[in-house]
Design a protein around this nucleic acid. Structure first.
Lengths: 201, 201
DNA sequence: TGCCAAGTCGAGGGTGCCTCGACATATTAT
DNA sequence: ATAATATGTCGAGGCACCCTCGACTTGGCA
């Protein structure tokens, strides 16, 4: 009857894992989530097989890389409701997510598809993001600052679109564009299948 | 002194060119602009070298594929000013471009970077798109329906973001999201560096 | 009919993805 | 210490793709 059912993880494995993560962060930052995994392995001084031993695929690697980052994001999101106006809180949240999702080129697309894909390593994180979005959106809607026909899924898409744009234009313009996106949530030109409607009668 | 300075182009070349374009259209449609060129060559029953003989690179192929499509788009854009409200015209234009840029996954990104890249085969098309955008935007701004701080570059980014989203969500939602984007152009929450400001005055 | 520019071919060198069996070694038990 | 073995590591190898280039073929024309 052994007390420790599993061996302690090997020290070299832990070291390698960390070196791979460091190299991957640098590569993804510079070349996007499509960066060469062989290059990352090379950079970490590890064989390609070792990299795959630690991370079975590209998404697993991204997910590991994003774990802490996500934690910080969620914490920030949790504190937002105490902020000034509900619309401001929502806007800040969208900005934070957009910045986050623009960390690596291609990440926004990854997050976008992971919302519905249960198999994705990023699915859980997306779920938590969605919950925060939902809460902030509901609060904003209740103050009448946001159109009634805007869903959390819409906001998710818009945040990621903001991140996508951030990959393509200078930061200053990206900031401005985010302002336009948030502005679009406000009541005004309800598309409307027939009825014109105001947010809540 | 020959009258015809150049030989008539060979018939087989013309035929091959067309078969390549047809295969490329199908492949891009299904797999995005990143589809395998070797696969396209295979599909057209042509050797890979032949494909490269006709189109020196992927962008040239996309550009050829888009030429007619672009012509139709520009014509539509030219007629728009005669439409109802200036804001509606702008909205319709944005929708048309978004649909266009979502024809192939990845095209929106291509169009985005081609606006500034003079070397791109798509640069000219982007320029014409920008001119139309500019005209419609100016008209809309003059009616006071659009915020003063919105530039044509902003609209370009937004249209392509709409296309990007269209690649990721169901069509119906995409349509709705476009409505939100257009709504964001309207006066209301001018970002403002410090001053809160009203739209004009 | 025959010349030859225009077009076609596909091997080949480079890169990347991912798998898998052989091999190495850190940890634990003796 | 030493051996036993679970845990890691290695990198060749099969496959796909990109793109180039020299050898070859063929359609248009005189």
């Amino acid at each position: 009857m052994s007390g420790t059912r599993t061996r302690r993880p090997r020290g070299d494995a832990q070291r390698n894992r960390e070196r791979i993560l460091a190299a991957a962060d640098e590569a993804f930052r510079e070349q996007g989530t499509g960066a060469s995994l062989e290059g990352i392995a090379r950079q970490s001084g590890v064989a390609i097989g070792t990299l795959y031993g630690h991370f079975p695929n590209r998404r697993a690697l991204s997910a590991a890389l994003l774990r802490e980052r996500h934690a910080a994001l969620f914490e920030f999101g949790g504190e937002l409701p105490e902020r000034a106006s509900a619309l401001d809180a929502l806007g800040e949240w969208m900005g934070a997510v957009a910045v986050h999702a623009a960390a690596y080129r291609g990440l926004a697309a990854l997050l976008m598809e992971s919302l519905d894909d249960e198999a994705s390593e990023l699915h859980e994180a997306c779920g938590r993001m969605a919950a925060i979005t939902e809460a902030l959106l509901t609060a904003a809607r209740e103050t009448g600052a946001v159109r009634g026909d805007v869903t959390a899924a819409d906001v998710h898409a818009l945040m990621n679109a903001a991140a996508w744009m951030r990959e393509q234009v200078p930061e200053e313009q990206a900031e401005h564009l985010l302002g336009l996106l948030v502005n679009g949530l406000r009541p005004g030109g309800e598309a409307g299948e027939g009825r014109r409607s105001g947010p809540r009668r």
